[in-house]
């Protein structure tokens, strides 16, 4: 339970960065931290006390393993997180080229 709450606190740090910061790179970093917290939460849900990693071996019983399904889903989620970060960073680079700043309050006027 404490671990769940700590993971939630990590999520809230990322949420604070997204909501409060005015620098685009800080917002992207906040998104990344939220993504870390979500992935960690899924893996925390899948953990079993004295469990073993879900790889078959000779001398083991099936019910002693941790849950492999959230691990497979998080594996997908990590790669998609990389794609999202790359896309958002490229948009931020483009905005910097156009406006010369990362400050989101300065980026409000249209320039052709």
């Amino acid at each position: 339970m404490t671990l769940y709450l700590l993971c939630l606190a990590l999520f809230c740090v990322g949420l604070y960065g997204v909501l409060r910061k005015r620098n685009l790179v800080k917002i992207i970093i906040g998104l990344g931290i939220m993504e870390y917290a979500m992935n960690l939460f899924f893996i925390l849900l899948a953990y079993r006390y004295h469990g073993r990693s879900p790889i078959e071996a000779q001398d083991q019983q099936i019910l002693q393993m941790v849950d492999p399904l959230p691990q497979a889903l998080v594996l997908t989620s990590i790669v998609i997180g990389l794609a999202v970060t790359a896309l958002v960073i490229s948009i931020a680079i483009r905005i910097y080229e156009k406006y010369g700043t990362f400050d989101i309050t300065e980026i409000k006027r249209l320039r052709g």
Binding site: V66, I78, L82, I89
Partner: peptide, 26 residues
């Protein structure tokens, strides 16, 4: 520690790529 070695490997690679992209931006 949570017994997910596949995820640890993937996270390591993705983290290095993410750092390179972020440093390029900043």
């Amino acid at each position: 520690i949570l017994k997910a070695p596949d995820l640890a490997i993937t996270q390591l690679v993705v983290e290095i790529l993410c750092l390179i992209i972020l440093i390029r931006a900043t």
